[in-house]
Design a protein around this nucleic acid. Structure first.
Lengths: 341, 341
DNA sequence: GTGAAAGCGCTAACAT
DNA sequence: ATGTTAGCGCTTTCAC
């Protein structure tokens, strides 16, 4: 493997100059010299050693991204958005799959940090009842003052960075209002595990909207299951075979709603006539499934690019406190709610 | 950030000893000394600098994995399997999303290589008409002699490593035989883009089985579309509204079959009565959708762990030629083919 | 505009 | 069993 020394030798210059041209700085280089260097790089098939560079610079243009599970289309889409935005700005992203385990998330964070990554983006890996990151992850984050950090969950106290999220409460409210507008008064909720902030927020949006509409939320059905379609299917399949105390359901995610659609089909129900549903996220599949899902569309692309922007900002001036930022969602009406489509 | 010097100082020993205990070798360390070192590491919250280590060792225990698209459940599952196997063996995997672009795949390969990764696993990113990797990726692979390499597509000539894949031909044959067994004689195929090896192989299995059964394959319908359910939906939705010259379809992937199921529903067809389908892959969703998919199940977990084993083998003795390895699939009969389920 | 050289944090051969 | 030390390939300050 050719090194920078070889390039310098071939170009008849010093190693410093090679750096200057490869990095476009910090010193200027004469056009002719630059040409010779570039030529030498080409001839040698030279590839810079990123480890050496990271060691010398004490940081690497790599963003560490941890997602809870890339089998989930929403996380896959968000991951793709983040990766796209990062790549466009010249960062490389390295992806870890936490599988919803604090241990694994912590291991990835350690790995990324030890590789001198320039920032961390953590998606939906809460483990604690207060919606914060799990103990192992939290411990690392608290120690790691100054690392650019964007989290889609609340940060542990002591960790600095920004919490980025969709406006769950408002989005959920729009969804439930829409269902009320369709004339429903018995509107249940299929929520997620209680320890997630997003779960709590969407549930709050549901509850408050119901109350505003004069419907007693406390007497409505609340069900809970994990985020995947399979679990939602298992939960609702048997249940939907008998009459239920709701005519409509607000569902925490599209992914879960897809499970409900399958379960309803298995139970012989026709949606939206027998059961109207509205969910949250706006994954692509929401537009494919029958009935097409009315859903609260998250600005996934913007969330991705905003996350990267925030990392960039924090690289420039290290985070010294926690900030929060919410992006607005918009209700996309399709057919599952009872609209003509 | 504490360094190895700090640890040595606190433990009252030399930096070499710290390395010996942290790496469990290459020299033995007295139990008492080891304890002091471990204690110092703990006290300082010391985290080794992976960049420095990679620079010094000239390699890093990281496996670079490139998938074409992690929005696709099959690739997500395979990625998860690979990641799980790698983690279990002490490797870290860094994931790149090529989005089916040679440029992007090549960029990831470069990145991984420049970070001293110890091996490369490339999944389904063929770009050439012969099923091989695209020009940019191929150029890199050819130059990079000796890097442990596992590819799920054919390797460019000049590159060494092993091509790992399911036994597509045999699997496809089993699927088509099953359809013939159900009494179908007009069995079309929904294939993928022709340039992929897997596409050619599954198509061959279909063709040969038809011929063996005395059915003229050349007069059967062949359709093609990309690997996602959306494209399969778009392709077949209009089409299925009018009578078709096939009563059964062998579909290249479950993902595409899901698109067909949605399209059939939109067209008012009932599966499997109006159209029987069998597909390939065995993703989890095959068991959820209605009708449940009869499919050729790939041994996804084994493919993942085998890929990592192969990397490990090649680390021990560098690859000097190309080898091929196929894993057997098995037909899982469910309802989409016409079986009672 | 260019070159020399001092590190960055770690590994491992060599010495004790 | 432990310590010394010469790199690994790159960046960057400082001199010229």
């Amino acid at each position: 493997m050719a090194t920078r020394d070889d390039v310098a030798r071939l170009a008849g210059t010093s190693t410093a100059v090679v750096s200057y041209v490869l990095n476009n700085g910090p010193r200027p280089v004469a056009a002719a010299t630059r040409q010779r260097v570039l030529q030498a790089v080409e001839d040698l098939g030279y590839r810079p050693n990123a480890a050496a560079r990271a060691l010398s610079r004490r940081h690497d243009d790599v963003i560490g991204l941890v997602v809870p599970n890339f089998d989930n289309p929403y996380f896959a889409a968000l991951g793709t958005a983040i990766e796209g935005a990062a790549t466009a700005k010249g960062y490389t992203v390295i992806l870890g799959n936490a599988r919803h385990e604090d241990e694994r998330q912590a291991a990835y964070v350690e790995t990324f940090l030890s590789r001198q990554c320039c920032g961390l983006i953590l998606v939906g890996a809460a483990q604690e009842s207060d919606g914060r990151n799990g103990p192992r992850t939290s411990a690392i984050l608290k120690r790691e003052q100054g690392i650019p950090l964007v989290s889609f969950d609340p940060l542990p106290s002591g960790a600095n960075g920004t919490v980025l999220a969709p406006d769950n409460v408002t989005g959920a409210a729009a969804a439930v209002e829409h269902l009320v507008g369709h004339g429903h008064s018995r509107i249940g909720m299929l929520a997620g595990p209680e320890r997630f902030m997003a779960v709590q927020e969407r549930e709050r949006g549901w509850r408050e909207t119901l109350d505003t509409a004069g419907i007693d939320a406390a007497s409505q059905t609340v069900m809970r299951c994990r985020f995947d379609r399979y679990e939602a299917f298992d939960l609702t399949e048997g249940l939907l075979r008998s009459p239920q105390p709701f005519t409509a359901l607000f569902i925490h995610t599209d992914e879960q709603a897809i499970g409900v659609i399958h379960a309803a089909r298995a139970a012989g129900l026709t949606l939206p006539q027998d059961l109207a549903i509205v969910s949250f996220d706006g994954i692509r599949e929401a537009g494919l499934i029958t009935p097409q899902l009315t859903t609260v569309q998250q600005p996934i692309t913007q969330l991705g690019s905003r996350a990267v922007d925030l990392i960039q900002t924090q690289i420039a001036s290290r985070p010294t406190r926690r900030t929060t930022e919410q992006l607005t969602c918009r209700l996309v009406t399709r057919m599952s709610c009872g609209c003509p489509g």
